[in-house]
């Protein structure tokens, strides 16, 4: 019995040694949204190397991914993020308001409204585009199944929703009744409503559900790259929205953890030539296209883009409660697919 116990202890110790992590000097936590996994995997490695040569210190960046709203909720509930890189301004605003750990003027602290990269909303369809989907009205054709995540929980889905709203506004010349009718019809074509952008992509590409996926441009390119250009095609609609996923330092957390210097360097590096190059390589549109490789830039289609600050939306402070708040437009128009 005793020998058994001793060998058990030795076994556990060996197991522990095998799985024990390497100890880093500084550890940062970047709380991000769903589709940025691949971007930050590449960027974190580049930043760690850069930081080592600059300061001689070792830094490890840990990642947490999920739907943007869910991630903001986690930070509000106490997740010790050093930086947040979310899909929406509204989600960072929510953290700022609820915790006071981020100053209200966070958007002005970094270049380009704190958005080192932008993206837009496009369609991903199956190879050969069997349903002939070219623009927004094609999504509500009889028999077309549309995959998009839940705008209540996914940042990407909110951009998708607003892009559709921008189309409807143009098509129906601002007739709100008709616009709501179109949006309601659009969501009646949605058979699966995932909570995050990545879940929706998985449903569409892996599970074979639906005829068209409305998603981030970067997510569509990534799906093409990961799962084969022989299976899917990207379709650029006539009008879309300029999505600006913002980043912010969580002052309250970095000051407590003593990681401010590394965290600030981390965010600044996103704007550096190398950061911008990686951004473009991972299918995001860089804030400074000059730093990106031409081949990467050539992949992006030219689209007519509205912005969130367009009078149609009036910025996130107005659009968020009007469209996605409890009892907002989305709640009013949403009727599930039958």
């Amino acid at each position: 019995m005793r020998r058994m116990r001793r060998s058990l202890a030795a076994g556990l110790a060996a197991l522990w040694a095998m799985v024990a992590p390497a100890v880093a000097d500084t550890t940062l936590l970047n709380v991000s949204y769903d589709p940025t996994r691949e971007l930050y995997e590449a960027f974190n490695a580049a930043f760690a190397a850069h930081f080592k040569t600059e300061t001689g210190e070792t830094v490890t960046v840990r990642m947490s991914h999920g739907g943007s709203g869910k991630q903001a909720r986690a930070v509000i509930d106490g997740l010790k993020a050093d930086v947040v890189t979310l899909a929406l301004e509204a989600d960072i605003d929510a953290i700022a308001e609820a915790t006071g750990k981020i100053p209200a003027n966070w958007r002005d602290r970094l270049p380009n409204h704190s958005a080192p990269y932008t993206s837009t909303i496009v369609f991903l369809v199956r190879k050969g585009n069997p349903q002939g989907i070219h623009d927004w009205p094609d999504l509500v054709k009889e028999g077309v199944e549309v995959i998009t995540p839940n705008p209540k929980t996914s940042g990407g889905a909110r951009w998708s929703y607003l892009a559709a709203w921008a189309y409807a506004s143009e098509a129906f010349h601002g007739d709100e009744e008709a616009m709501r009718g179109f949006m309601g019809e659009l969501f009646r074509h949605v058979p699966v409503l995932d909570t995050g952008a990545r879940g929706a992509t998985t449903t569409f590409v892996r599970r074979g559900i639906g005829d068209v996926l409305i998603t981030w441009e970067n997510e569509a390119f990534l799906a093409l790259k990961e799962l084969g250009p022989d299976k899917f095609e990207i379709v650029a609609p006539s009008i879309s929205i300029k999505a600006e996923p913002p980043i912010a330092l969580v002052d309250g957390n970095v000051d407590k953890a003593g990681t401010r210097q590394a965290a600030e360097a981390y965010l600044a590096y996103l704007y550096s030539p190398e950061g911008q190059r990686l951004v473009a390589k991972n299918f995001y549109r860089p804030a400074e296209p000059a730093f990106a490789d031409n081949a990467d830039m050539a992949r992006f289609p030219h689209l007519k883009l509205v912005t969130i600050d367009d009078p149609l939306f009036g910025g996130w402070k107005k659009a968020q409660p009007a469209h996605f708040g409890n009892g907002g437009v989305f709640d009013q128009i949403y009727q599930p697919a039958r």
Partner: peptide, 24 residues
């Protein structure tokens, strides 16, 4: 959990994360 990779992900949560990264 907070889903921090390498820190607060248990095995079942890691399964979900990999599943969401196309690493089926």
């Amino acid at each position: 959990s907070g889903h921090i990779r390498g820190l607060t992900n248990t095995m079942p949560l890691h399964v979900e994360i990999l599943y969401n990264e196309y690493s089926f």
